[in-house]
Design a protein around this nucleic acid. Structure first.
Lengths: 136, 136
DNA sequence: GAGGACAGGTCTCAATTAGAGACCTGCTTC
DNA sequence: GAAGCAGGTCTCTAATTGAGACCTGTCCTC
């Protein structure tokens, strides 16, 4: 609790410093969060958490991702050092993606978020229904 | 560690069940993650973590958010029960946003993610540079 | 009492981004 | 020799975003 606030306060200070300056916004945390906070990254990382997988295994696991977005998400994650890409010179060459140590280290905090989402989902859903039904 | 994997495995099972069915993807965790995983939600929640704030205070704190997106983000967060909106009938009516208990409960897991981002930023940045410089 | 400022938005339009799906290369199978 | 899979790329369209004009109402200043 106290820990959470101290982390967030540190971040806030960064952000308000930024609010002063005329420069474009530049904050490491935002930079990273923008990257892993997109629609597919978290899903891909969690899918790779159990075991390394090939391109088409990932596509089957995450049914509604398009090839285009899967390719792009994998490239971005590789670029950030969260996953690694291994090409095997088999008959039709196969490509395997696996979590790099950096990606592994993300599992812990990510799991706490997933756990939160899981436990609070019913509250959130109830709030939505209430909001949508409310007068006006 | 073990905890992280068990949470993620539970989620994965959900996802692979889903992979079997012909139905459109439907998973509580994804539902929630899509919502808070957008560009602005995390920023707004963290800004409100320190104290309740008014619309224009938020705009000043998050300099590069447009009015349109701030309004929309706040509505969505309110709808999900993460924040509450209070209108005061002052001379020019003022509107204050504050974290609801549900939003408070998100601070802890979110902070662990922010902390990760903060501590790993240099690794990620180094990986990017390496990737961008690499042959081809 | 006209002009400007601020609060909290909404609306419109242009630019960016995402998704569907056709297409490509190389190799195997019927 | 038609068809299928792997791992992508390319193109076209649809949805999302951001910039910024505009709106209503209440101050304050001159």
């Amino acid at each position: 609790m106290g820990t959470a606030l101290s982390v967030i306060e540190r971040f806030s200070r960064f952000q308000s410093d930024d609010a002063q300056s005329a420069e474009p916004v530049c904050c490491p945390v935002r930079d990273v969060l923008d990257r892993i906070g997109d629609k597919w990254s978290v899903l891909v990382i969690m899918t790779l958490a159990t075991r390394p997988q090939r391109f088409s295994e990932l596509r089957r696991a995450i049914r509604d991702i398009s090839k285009r977005m899967l390719t792009q998400t994998l490239r971005d994650l590789e670029r950030d050092g969260l996953i690694t890409r291994h090409v095997y010179a088999t008959k039709p060459p196969s490509v395997e993606y696996r979590l790099a140590p950096l990606g592994q280290s993300l599992l812990e905090p990510m799991a706490s978020l997933v756990d939160w989402a899981d436990r609070r989902y019913s509250d959130i859903h109830a709030a939505r229904v209430r909001f949508d039904e409310s007068p006006l």
